[in-house]
Amino acid sequence: MAARIDLTLDCADATLLADFWKTALGYVDEPPPAPFRTREEWLAQFDLPEDDSVDDAAWLCDPEGVGPRLSILRVPEPKRAKNRLHLDLRVPGHGSAAERWARIRAESARLVAAGGRVLAEYDGHHVVMADPEGNEFCVAAGPATG
């Protein structure tokens, strides 16, 4: 049986990144585990230091249960280098290469409006972007089928 994976992003501002990635992925806030009704209630069981806050982390999930869970955790150190692992966001749809590129560009523009930035464009193929804290990801088309 294959292992399931969760993805974790370290950050300075968990709320900022959670808002961006919910927009980018169509994810939602993951409900707290049973029997807890809120994240605050769940976190209270861990006897965390007083300076820890529920705003120091976010847990996101695919509302359809298909994609991996995304944990976003505040850490004290800043991002210092290029990510060794990054996400590729695949824009769905069929059509010609020009139509797929137009969808990639439109999705990139939508993510810029949400707080991301374009780092590089590889014309007709993919766009390298960064989230609001500089974590790199790519926007590309799904498999070419038309």
Rank of each mutant, 00 (worst) to 15 (best):
P33I: 14
L48Q: 06
E30A: 12
D62M: 02
L70R: 07
A44S: 15
V28G: 10
S71R: 09
A18T: 05
P63E: 14
A18R: 07
Y27T: 08
A24L: 02
P33K: 13
I72F: 00
E64V: 11
G65A: 05
E64D: 09
A57F: 14
G65R: 02
V54F: 00
L17R: 00
F20Q: 04
W59Y: 15
V28P: 04
L70M: 01
D52I: 07
P32T: 04
L70C: 06
L25G: 03
A34P: 13
G65F: 03
C61L: 05
P49L: 10
T23S: 13
G26Q: 03
D51F: 11
R69W: 03
P68S: 08
V66N: 11
A58L: 12
A57Q: 14
L48W: 04
D56T: 07
L70H: 01
P63C: 03
P32V: 12
W59Q: 14
F46W: 09
R39W: 15
P32K: 10
V54R: 12
L73T: 09
R69F: 02
P68W: 01
D19C: 08
Y27L: 00
A44F: 07
D56S: 15
L70S: 04
G26S: 10
E64Y: 01
P33A: 12
K22A: 00
E41S: 09
I72Q: 02
G65S: 00
Q45D: 08
A58R: 10
S71M: 03
L25E: 03
A57H: 13
Q45S: 06
T23C: 12
P35H: 07
E50Y: 01
Y27H: 06
W42L: 03
P63L: 02
A24Q: 03
S53H: 15
L70E: 07
D62A: 09
A44W: 07
D29R: 00
D52P: 00
L73C: 11
K22P: 02
W59R: 13
P33S: 12
G26A: 05
W21G: 02
P63T: 06
F36G: 00
L43F: 11
D51H: 13
P35I: 05
W59I: 13
E64R: 06
S53N: 14
R39L: 15
L70N: 05
F46Q: 06
T38P: 02
G65Q: 01
L48V: 08
I72V: 10
Y27G: 05
A44I: 14
D62T: 06
L43T: 10
D55T: 15
P49E: 06
G67M: 01
K22W: 02
E30D: 14
V66C: 06
G26V: 02
A58H: 09
V28A: 11
P32I: 11
E41Y: 07
T23W: 00
G26T: 08
A57M: 15
